[in-house]
Simulated assay, not measured.
Amino acid sequence: MEMEGRKTPLYDRHTAAGGKIVPFAGWLLPVQYSGVIAEHRAVRSACGLFDVSHMGELVLRGADALVNVNNLMTNDFSGMADGQARYSPMCYEDGGVVDDLIVYRCSDTAYLIVVNAANRDKDAGWIRAHLTGDCAMEDISDQVAQLALQGPEAESILRTLTGDIPEKNYTAVLRGTVDGRPCLVSRTGYTGEDGFELYCAPGDAPALWDALIAAGAVPCGLGARDTLRLEAAMPLYGHELSPEINPYEAGLGIFVKLDKDGFIGKAALEQARPVRRRRVGLKMTGRGIAREECPVYDGERQIGVVTSGTHCPWLGCAVAMALVDADYKEPGTALQVDVRGRRVEAEVVKTPFYKRNG
Rank of each mutant, 00 (worst) to 15 (best):
R342Y: 11
P243I: 06
D298C: 13
N246T: 08
T310V: 07
P243F: 06
A272L: 06
M284N: 05
E249D: 01
V305N: 04
C312R: 05
D259S: 13
A320V: 07
E249I: 03
E293F: 15
A268I: 03
G288N: 04
R301D: 15
L282F: 09
V305W: 05
M234N: 11
T227P: 02
G216F: 11
V324W: 07
A250Y: 03
A217F: 06
M321K: 06
G221P: 11
P331R: 00
E270M: 06
A250T: 09
P247H: 04
V306Q: 00
A334T: 15
D261E: 14
C294P: 06
G299L: 01
K257M: 02
G221E: 09
V280P: 05
K260T: 07
R342T: 14
E240N: 01
D259Q: 15
C220W: 08
E292N: 12
A326T: 13
V218M: 11
R287G: 06
I289A: 02
V324S: 03
E292A: 13
K329H: 14
R277I: 08
G341T: 12
V275T: 15
C220M: 03
R343S: 10
R229L: 04
A224Q: 10
E249Q: 07
M234C: 06
R301Q: 15
L222I: 13
V319Y: 06
E293A: 11
I289F: 08
Y248N: 08
G332E: 07
R279S: 11
V319Q: 06
E244I: 03
A250I: 04
V280D: 00
G286D: 08
K266V: 09
G304P: 09
R343F: 09
W314E: 14
V275I: 15
G304D: 08
E244F: 09
E240P: 06
K266T: 10
R276F: 12
G299E: 14
G281Q: 07
D210M: 00
D327G: 13
A267Q: 15
L282G: 08
N246G: 04
R340C: 13
L222W: 10
L258A: 05
R279W: 12
K266L: 08
C220I: 08
A320Y: 08
G223N: 05
I264E: 04
C294A: 11
R279E: 09
M321Q: 15
V319C: 02
G299N: 09
R279N: 12
